[in-house]
Simulated scan of single mutants.
Amino acid sequence: MLDTTRSEAATSPEGDEHEPRGCLFALSQPPLMIFLAVIGSLFLMAALHDLLLL
C-alpha cells in the first residue's frame, strides 16, 4: 500500500526550496549582469559619440 504520510523533513519550516526571492537575487545572476553591462556600454558609447564627435 502507498504511504501518503508526510515525513518530518517535508513539514519542517526550514525547507528553503520555495523561499520567495527578491529583485536583488535576480540582479545577482551572471547572465543578467552581462546583458545589463552590454546594454550600459552601448548607451555609454552612444553618449560619448554624441558629446565628443557631433
Results as ranks from 00 to 15, higher is better:
residue 4 T to Y: 13
residue 26 A to I: 12
residue 33 M to K: 10
residue 38 V to Q: 08
residue 20 P to V: 08
residue 12 S to T: 15
residue 20 P to D: 07
residue 15 G to P: 02
residue 19 E to C: 04
residue 31 P to W: 07
residue 52 L to H: 05
residue 12 S to E: 10
residue 26 A to Y: 13
residue 30 P to L: 13
residue 51 L to H: 05
residue 5 T to R: 12
residue 48 L to E: 10
residue 8 E to A: 15
residue 17 E to S: 12
residue 30 P to S: 07
residue 2 L to C: 10
residue 21 R to V: 15
residue 22 G to T: 05
residue 1 M to F: 09
residue 10 A to C: 08
residue 24 L to Y: 08
residue 47 A to I: 02
residue 37 A to Q: 10
residue 5 T to C: 00
residue 24 L to M: 11
residue 13 P to K: 07
residue 19 E to K: 13
residue 40 G to D: 02
residue 9 A to G: 05
residue 26 A to L: 15
residue 49 H to P: 01
residue 21 R to K: 15
residue 17 E to P: 02
residue 15 G to C: 13
residue 27 L to G: 02
residue 8 E to T: 13
residue 35 F to K: 01
residue 30 P to H: 05
residue 53 L to Y: 04
residue 3 D to A: 14
residue 22 G to K: 03
residue 46 A to R: 08
residue 13 P to H: 04
residue 9 A to E: 12
residue 14 E to I: 03
residue 25 F to L: 03
residue 9 A to F: 09
residue 23 C to P: 01
residue 2 L to D: 11
residue 39 I to A: 14
residue 33 M to H: 00
residue 44 L to Q: 04
residue 43 F to V: 14
residue 31 P to T: 01
residue 39 I to S: 09
residue 48 L to N: 10
residue 40 G to Y: 02
residue 29 Q to E: 10
residue 44 L to G: 03
residue 19 E to R: 15
residue 18 H to L: 14
residue 35 F to T: 03
residue 48 L to W: 08
residue 26 A to E: 14
residue 16 D to P: 00
residue 2 L to W: 10
residue 51 L to T: 07
residue 12 S to G: 09
residue 49 H to F: 11
residue 38 V to M: 13
residue 36 L to K: 01
residue 15 G to Q: 14
residue 17 E to L: 15
residue 14 E to Y: 11
residue 54 L to I: 12
residue 40 G to R: 01
residue 32 L to D: 02
residue 43 F to K: 04
residue 14 E to R: 06
residue 31 P to K: 01
residue 40 G to F: 03
residue 42 L to D: 00
residue 38 V to I: 15
residue 26 A to C: 11
residue 19 E to S: 06
residue 19 E to Y: 07
residue 30 P to F: 02
residue 9 A to T: 11
residue 6 R to D: 03
residue 7 S to R: 04
residue 54 L to Q: 13
residue 52 L to I: 12
residue 8 E to K: 12
residue 9 A to M: 08
residue 47 A to F: 03
residue 24 L to V: 08
residue 48 L to Q: 11
residue 38 V to L: 15
residue 38 V to H: 03
residue 15 G to H: 11
residue 16 D to G: 07
residue 4 T to Q: 13
residue 34 I to Q: 12
residue 36 L to N: 08
residue 14 E to P: 00
residue 51 L to N: 05
residue 13 P to L: 14
residue 22 G to W: 06
residue 23 C to M: 07
residue 5 T to S: 14
residue 33 M to P: 02
residue 4 T to K: 13
residue 50 D to G: 01
residue 25 F to I: 00
residue 14 E to N: 11
residue 25 F to A: 12
residue 43 F to H: 09
